[in-house]
Every structure is written in C-alpha cells, then in structure tokens.
Design a protein around this nucleic acid. Structure first.
Lengths: 250, 250
DNA sequence: TTCTTTAAGTGCAATTAACAAAAAAGTTTG
DNA sequence: CAAACTTTTTTGTTAATTGCACTTAAAGAA
C-alpha cells in the first residue's frame, strides 16, 4: 500500500526562509506529559531514518521569541495557554552536524545542497512545556512522519544534542517543581493524592513518604477536595482533588 | 585639552561583521561586583549621549556560545576563570529600537545608514558573572568611552531592556545564592563573617540574623578559618575566612 | 586590673520535617 | 450482618532547623 509518493507539502524554500525567519536561530521544545505513572515527552519521528528529534521551529522576523515558542507548541499539540518556560540556549559548535538533517531530507526525497539553509549552524533556544497528556493531540511537522509520546525512561536515540536538552529541561523542571508549584500542569482536572505523589516521585526520581507529602501539599492550601469520590475496589476510596489556582498568590 | 578627535579604532564594517559573526544574535553581560557593602555592576558609558549599557558582544561563526561569553567578559574585565552563567535569552520585538544605537554612533562621529548591521533586530543571550571587585580592570569597548562600576541601588538610565536584564539577572542570582553557594565569587580571598553576611543581605535585600547565618554557613563545612586576624580597634578582632573550594562536592 | 566595644558561641523556645501508628471507609466473606 | 481485609487519611511522637536572648571571648584604653 505504501508506495513511494512524491512529497506533497513543501518545506520552506531558501528564499522564503530568509525573507520571513531569523537566520541561524531555532527553538527546541521539551514537551512533558504524564500518563500511567510515566513521565513522557513528545518526539518527532522521521521515516526511513530511525531518527528522532524534539519538536522545533523558527522565529519569524516580526515575532517575539516567546510568541514563537507558543506558536510552535500549538502547532505540535493543538494546545494553547500552556505552562511554557525557557530554560537554556544551546550554542556549542559541536551541535552543528549536517548528517542527521541530510539523512532526514533524503528520507523525504529532498535533494539538499551542502549550503541548504537547514544545514547551517543553528543556535537553539530551549523551552519546556507541561501539558495535560489527555488533552494534547500530537501533530507531525512538514519533515516528520510521526509525533508521539515516548517514555522518558525508554527514549529512542535522539539527534544532535537533543538528549542533553531533554536532560537539562528535566533538571530545570526538578528545581522548579517545589518553588513554582508547576506539577499540576501535568495532571488532569482532578486527581488523587496517590497520583500526584507518583508524579512528584517520577519527576524527582526518588520515593517520597506518603504522610509528609500529603501534609505538605495540603498545608500549601492550593488543593481543593472535590466532593465526588472514586469508584473502587474493596477498600476505602481516595479523595479527588483539584488545583485551586485562585488560591495561588504570586 | 580634549579636542574633537577623529575615531582611531574602527568598529567592524558590515562586510567584516557578516563574514565573521553570527547575524542577529548578541550576548549581554551583567557583571556583578561587591564593594563597601554595595552590590555593583559594570556599565559602559557613551560620550555626548548620556546613555549607559551593559557590556555586550557578538558570537564568532566558529565559536561556542559559552566561549563567546567568556571572551566578552575577559575583554571588559581582563579576568579569566570567572563564575559565569547564562540566565535568559531576550527576544521581544520591543527591544528592537534603533534610536539609542543611532545616537551612540552619531556621538562617535559614525554616519550610519538606516540598514546598518548594528541597527538590525538582535536577540540577546544574557549571562551574569560574579567577579572579585578588587581584581577587575574595566576596559571600554570600541564604541564606549567608559567602563565603570555603578551601585545597583543607584543606576543611571540604561538603554533598551537592559534594566529588565539586570533585574532578571539579580533574581536568578538570588535564587541560586543558597542552592549553588556562589556568593564567594564576589568576595576577595579572605573575608570576615560580617562581610559575608553583608553580601548576602545586599543580594537578598533583607536583614539576616547573625547567629543563624553564622551557624548555617559554618555547618556547611565549606569555610576555612584563616589563622591570621585583623588589625583592629579596641575590641576583639574578627576571624578571617576563606572559601575551601576543595570541600565542595557536586 | 577594670572598662568598653565588638566578635563568637550557647541554651532554649518555636517551627518544620521525618517516622510510626492508628483511625476511617469501602468491599468481601463466613 | 459483623468480622476481616485493604487502602486512604489523620494523628501523634521524635528529630532537625531556625529565631532569639544571653553568655563568653578578645583586644585596646583608662
């Protein structure tokens, strides 16, 4: 069924890119989700290459950097008003390696010259986003053939320095978890205390004590107990909580 | 004595810049120092303009981003092996305002066309550095007429978004102060406990309790008491401490 | 020696976190 | 229908940290 087909959508021409986008600068996104007690990130997959990469994009000449990040996130997930934070800008020479992109373009039937704009040196601003797994609708971009969630504990090999980017994003997330109370962005509307604890444990990579965790989070005064309860087994049903954003001062 | 002189050093020509530097990307530096119980930063001053700016520079095409930052810091202070950390990348459209740079160039007798490369949109990577005030030797760059320390509590008006940059750098410094134990980089070789406390109080913008502060820092086990003491007045002389970097694990 | 002044250390209350045990709320089972 | 079982939630008890007042230490001056 899957015969070789001509590329339908065209990636931007050199001229089109130069006219509309800032040269040499890109945005890479580490989009975190949480599902079945696993921390996940969104990756693009390229056919016939075995290569995987973080979602990325470029900055329009008339666009704020942060707005470009929001746009790129929206393009890959369909989501708006998402927790999104810049965490580091990557500018080592070693990240300038033409091979992966050449392979990706060949896989798409694009015959790129050595000075194609996509093969030049890029400095990349890293952002990480925290999204509700159940709400995101992953969408591939022009060059990729798949956009899907992957377990952080079991990632495929990533191109260039994307593994380092992911690691740095995770470190930043860990450092900000308590300080900025951002974990809730990864949860659905309502959740049990055990689920929330599991999220914290997964992000921090360590076990937490049930009682301490519960007392600490409840004392923050930002959780609201929802009247309803779980349908459950032969035991006490856990309370459901929701994040009371109106109680957060800042 | 100071008659109008022709510019001696020439700023890079458009061609020279395009050949050697990454376009549209700059580095801005918030260089912190501490002297006489005041937190200070290094600013460039432009003659005949009343304008002040953070030290800045560009990235060579064959240079790592972090190496460019080190180079720029070295060019303005003469210092190497300094604590230097990237804190944010600024990319709002609103920071693209040609007027200040035009004024600076006119002040230097440069007749810049409207499409001069220095007047284009720049996205700027912010770094902050912590230096020993007594060791830095401020040096102006090609366009500026002065490079000096200014009290953080009494800054002259800065161009563009440099005030925001400074504020963000200070916030980052505050957040990292305890976590990364970086305050010592602002101190001379040896210092008294009172001086160290004054530094912390100045950075954090709040008074600290002496006993708690002392107990906490000594318990960290990273301070070494130096045998020598102060020459002093009619009272007990304070101990001198030095930072025992070999005792810091990380 | 005694006084004055500033530095450094100590003891205790108050707050916060760590650990342990008990109570609560469901369902299943005899 | 009550006893048993299971998981959630709350309540104490102990240990660690911090805030605060006070004591001790050191050095020159009277």
């Amino acid at each position: 069924m899957n015969l070789k087909q001509p590329t339908i959508k065209q990636e931007p021409s050199s001229k089109e890119f130069e006219q509309n986008y800032l040269p040499g600068l890109a945005i890479d996104m580490v989009i975190f989700g949480f599902h079945q007690n696993q921390l996940k990130i969104l990756l693009l997959q390229y056919q016939n290459t075995g290569l995987y990469a973080l979602p990325a994009g470029f900055i329009r000449k008339d666009e704020n950097l942060n707005d470009a990040a929001k746009r790129i996130l929206q393009e890959r997930t369909g989501l708006q008003n998402i927790y999104l934070e810049q965490f580091y800008t990557f500018g080592d020479m070693s990240r300038h390696d033409k091979k992966p992109m050449q392979k990706i373009m060949r896989g798409k039937g694009i015959n790129a010259k050595d000075d194609h704009w996509l093969l030049s040196r890029f400095i990349s601003v890293g952002y990480y986003a925290l999204v509700d797994y159940t709400k995101a609708v992953p969408i591939p971009d022009l060059l990729s053939d798949g956009c899907d969630w992957y377990d952080l504990s079991n990632l495929p090999p990533l191109i260039l320095d994307h593994q380092d980017m992911m690691a740095k994003a995770l470190t930043t997330l860990r450092e900000n978890l308590d300080r900025k109370l951002i974990g809730f962005n990864l949860m659905p509307e309502t959740f049990t205390m055990a689920e929330l604890q599991s999220l914290y444990e997964t992000i921090l990579g360590q076990q937490l004590r049930r009682t301490s965790f519960q007392r600490k989070l409840l004392n923050l005064g930002i959780l609201e107990r929802v009247a309803k309860r779980w349908t459950g087994g032969a035991h006490k049903a856990p309370y459901l909580y929701k994040f009371a954003s109106d109680k957060v001062r800042e």
